[in-house]
Write a protein that binds this DNA or RNA. Sequence first.
DNA 1: GCGCTACTGCGTACGGTGCAAGCAGTTACT
DNA 2: AGTAACTGCTTGCACCGTACGCAGTAGCGC
Lengths: 242, 242
Amino acid sequence: MTDLPRYLQLLWGREPEGRRGPKPGRTIEGIGAAAVEIADREGLEAVSMKSVARAVGFTTMSLYRYVDSKEELEAVMLDVAYGAPTFTYDTGSGWRDRISLWARGIAQRRLAHPWTVELIQSAPPLTPNVLAWTEHGLAALEDTPLTSEQRLSAMLAIDGWAQNHLRQSVQMGFTGPVDPESPQGNYLGLISQLIDPERFPQLTAAGSESLGDPDDNFYAEEFDRGMGLLLDGIAALIERHP
Amino acid sequence: MTDLPRYLQLLWGREPEGRRGPKPGRTIEGIGAAAVEIADREGLEAVSMKSVARAVGFTTMSLYRYVDSKEELEAVMLDVAYGAPTFTYDTGSGWRDRISLWARGIAQRRLAHPWTVELIQSAPPLTPNVLAWTEHGLAALEDTPLTSEQRLSAMLAIDGWAQNHLRQSVQMGFTGPVDPESPQGNYLGLISQLIDPERFPQLTAAGSESLGDPDDNFYAEEFDRGMGLLLDGIAALIERHP
DNA sequence: GCGCTACTGCGTACGGTGCAAGCAGTTACT
DNA sequence: AGTAACTGCTTGCACCGTACGCAGTAGCGC
């Protein structure tokens, strides 16, 4: 049994009691919240050990009393960004409504903190809020006849898709008003400048047709479309289930 | 009409002819390949302007004659990692076989260079090989009655899911032999140490049942399962198409 | 031929990063 | 009372991406 890394001990409140020395002056949640605030305001690249420390009134190295590395700080940030799931499922609602609600909830949290898509997590999440969301997602599929392995697969697929959709949308600059002067804004201009219509017929067609006017609703519409695809797939899986 | 960033000019062979001065001693493709080799061998964090420059026999700053920033270098790396799609679709094969083949092809390339999931692309891809794969994916759906907008959506959903599955698998350490000593290896140990079975009943159940023995085939099996979900969804979309 | 000019790769320098190590001061155990 | 474990702080290091100016080179217009 390996003992827990520091930040997990703190997040889960697993500190041994009766510890000597001064009480810690901050909480990791507070530190994470400060980091999140910086990321929301100035972008993820503005989050450094120094800037976060300053935001909580610390010197740089003091942060290492709460977190062993910047990567761990990022895990805390993600947990703060998720927050605890606040909604509950209507009694009587079916799995499709439930998991949709859940997916929308996750998408909403992530959309409020778009920098989450820039985080690279080299380890699976073990923080309280993220695990709470996972639990909530599994619970949405509780009434289906699927095995828990299938439920986990389905949930991971949905979560993964939602996350990826946000990622792609952020890349394309579709999450806010489209600025035609920005490099993303004239993506179409650049692409048509590059590709040979004979070598890239499908792309040429798709470009002129579909991406013609990516308006503000593009993100939401695409979200519903893709989610519908996945839910139909899950429905098919359930129907053919023994 | 904005003019192209340097690395795109080089990748697409759009340099003006009759240029003065010495010929460039390297190609971006070569530089990208060197960077890919470093990433394959020592991980993405070992890729620095210095290390790449040394690998091609340059000083650090010389790289900036080919690329305006490290981010552009990463775009080149991704393009090299993808390579050009080499396969063709069987005549007579249906869309389902075709897009499956395509998805497998992409997954294979990415799996050969797992660090691709760590790349954060802040702009949509405009490099030749990546666009060639996109074209190839759209062509797989050519025979379906879907609009090109729907085809694009479907393809993005599949690609996104494949990419995300790889990302999650890499995080979990499922892409290679499982080392129980590594932090990912005893993920289950850690999780069971943290969660209260009463507050996290679904997770507890899922953990003990499904993740019991994540063997080498877990990645591939999960890939097929999720892909099946998506393809079923697309099939449903096609059936109800006017 | 000539210089001019745009190009090559190189050397130096700068501000910023994450983090290792040792510090004096504080608190609660033995 | 003494000691051991903790707090936050200070200093210092190796490394990062990249701005800027350099001498040398190849093709242009004359």
